[in-house]
Design a binder for these strands. Structure first.
Length: 470
RNA sequence: GUCCCCAUCGUCUAGCGGUUAGGACGCGGCCCUCUCAAGGCUGAAACAGGGGUUCAAUUCCCCUUGGGGGCACCA
């Protein structure tokens, strides 16, 4: 058997919501492993739940994947389109006596579970139709098709991250393969699709660990090859509790809106559950080279937004100025209402970017820090700046002005002038600079003052300073 | 309830029988400095508890406790 030895991976989200952070990490790990091994990374949309699947969610998932930079190979596969094939497998199992029809009604099963719960017994399907043949009264009645799973022995999931996990087969009940309307369940669809697509490695959330055992029974019944499993520990919120809407920022799109860079997300999510010695800053290229399944941690991790900020600050500083100008421009255009930067604003943004990017942790902070470059005229003062520009400071502003006006408005000349003035007055440079900064930017913190004065130019700078001179 | 998984600083983690238990974020201090950052130096901060195994346990085994996940004709 000359088989393709390259791994085939897949990310298989269900389109019932946005691509959330946990799903994004699962996708990332699959993608990294595929790229690391030169294998294939497929994207399969698990839309067998017709009630809850929406085209909007499909779009959101695709958009999220693209933003994260996780490119998949080949066409997107929609699971529901393969329903006929799934049914075919179920029929075959039925014919081979590896599956059977169950006529138990929903009410009947609910009652069964309630009784089990009341008597403290494990809640499982009791196999009431496993060896029972339908009588005349079942004629024309709806039924589901269940797998006739082995009841003795145990099923062992050989997991790359969790090790060998054993389940007593008595713990696993006969799962539904085909619903009473004839549609396949997720359990059937995943196994059949993974088989048909030649999936060699199944990397997914640990919430699927129990499913793996049940799917293994189906795989055995089908005589299909067993893939390598890797169940990733879940991601919790900052408080350690399950990640939920309450924590906000669930969807990857929310992170984009908060001004995080895709490379930040890839690096952060990678380190959340995977490690390579003491390395923290790991470029995507480096990640592809290093990624392996052995270094995936076993315990659940929590989101740490401070660390995410820190990483994002790093990647912002690493980004090329022109790239950031484009990012900020694009970012502002997505605001409501959208903001459009003129050519002057863009030129100033570009010129100030080396200083600007040193001070921002997110694209939001970057845009806010550049605010004073976007429009002309006197600045509105923020609280701290207003407090600083008290009469005394304004008077000082007026006194400083002549010294500045005497220069040819180059950054170093301006600084020299300000220093000279401060020395003459027996003041520290900061005491002279702060009022100037407040008038120029409307804030008490900004990129280096003299660079900004030079950048804005003599005329514009003087307009802003004179507006607050006492 | 039942099955399964997990457990090192506040957080993410390194460690794979013998270490001054390392790094990163965050926090404190110092330096640099026109502000804010960035950067440099530095400090505090962890092996959940109890039993074993062993000459030796953070490391291996068991129990307890604490988290998490599953137990649908959802995925």
């Amino acid at each position: 058997m000359a088989e393709n030895t390259k791994p085939v991976l897949r990310f298989a989200p269900s389109p019932t919501g946005m691509l959330h952070i946990g799903g994004a990490r699962t996708a990332l790990f699959n993608w990294l492993y595929a790229r690391h091994t030169g294998g294939t990374f497929l994207l399969r949309i698990e839309d067998t739940d017709r009630e809850r699947s929406t085209p909007e969610a499909v779009d959101a998932i695709l958009a999220g994947m693209r933003w994260m930079g996780l490119n998949w190979d080949g066409e997107v596969i929609f699971q529901f389109a393969r329903a006929t094939r799934h049914r075919e497998v179920a029929e075959k199992l039925l014919a081979e006596d590896k599956a059977y029809r169950c006529y138990a009604t929903a009410e009947e099963l609910t009652q069964m579970r309630e009784e089990q719960k009341a008597t403290g017994k494990p809640m499982r399907y009791d196999g009431r139709w496993r060896d029972r043949h339908p009588g005349p009264e079942q004629q024309g009645k709806p039924f589901v098709v269940r797998l006739k799973a082995r009841q003795d022995g145990e099923t062992i999931v050989h997991d790359m991250v969790l090790g060998h996990v054993r389940f007593e087969n008595t713990q696993l009940d006969d799962m539904v393969l085909l619903r009473s309307d004839g549609t396949p369940t997720y359990m059937l669809a995943v196994v059949v699709d993974d088989f048909d697509m030649g999936i060699t490695h199944v990397i997914r959330g640990a919430d699927h660990l129990n499913n793996a055992a049940r799917q293994l029974q189906l795989i055995e019944a089908m005589g299909a090859p067993v893939p390598v499993y890797g169940h990733l520990p879940l991601i919790n919120g900052p408080d350690g509790a399950k990640l939920s809407k309450r924590h906000g920022a669930l969807a990857v799109g929310a992170y984009r809106d908060m001004g995080y860079l895709p490379e930040t997300m890839r690096n952060y999510l990678l380190r959340l559950g995977w490690s390579h010695g003491d390395d923290e800053i790991i470029s995507t290229a480096q990640a592809i080279e290093w990624f392996n399944l052995d270094s995936i941690g076993k315990s659940a991790a929590r989101m740490d937004y401070k660390k995410l900020d820190n990483l994002n600050g790093h990647y912002i500083r690493e980004s090329a100025d022109a790239t950031l100008v484009a990012e900020v421009t694009e970012f502002l255009s997505r605001e409501t209402p959208p903001r459009v930067l003129g050519t002057t604003a863009r030129a100033r943004l570009q010129a100030a970017m080396p200083s600007l990017k040193e001070r921002a942790k997110t694209l939001v902070e970057l845009s806010q820090g550049a605010e004073f470059l976007f429009t002309d005229g006197p600045r509105a003062l923020d609280e701290a700046a207003a407090k600083l520009l008290m009469p005394q400071a304004r008077a000082l502003l007026a006194e400083t002005l002549p010294a500045l006006e005497a220069t040819d408005w180059g950054a170093s000349d301006l600084e020299a002038a300000a220093r000279g003035f401060a020395d003459a007055k027996g003041l520290k440079l900061g005491q002279v600079a702060q009022p100037l900064r407040a008038a120029l930017t409307g804030k008490t913190s900004s990129p280096p003052l003299f660079e900004m004065l030079a950048l804005l130019g003599r005329e514009e700078s003087l307009i802003r300073i004179r507006a607050y001179r006492g």
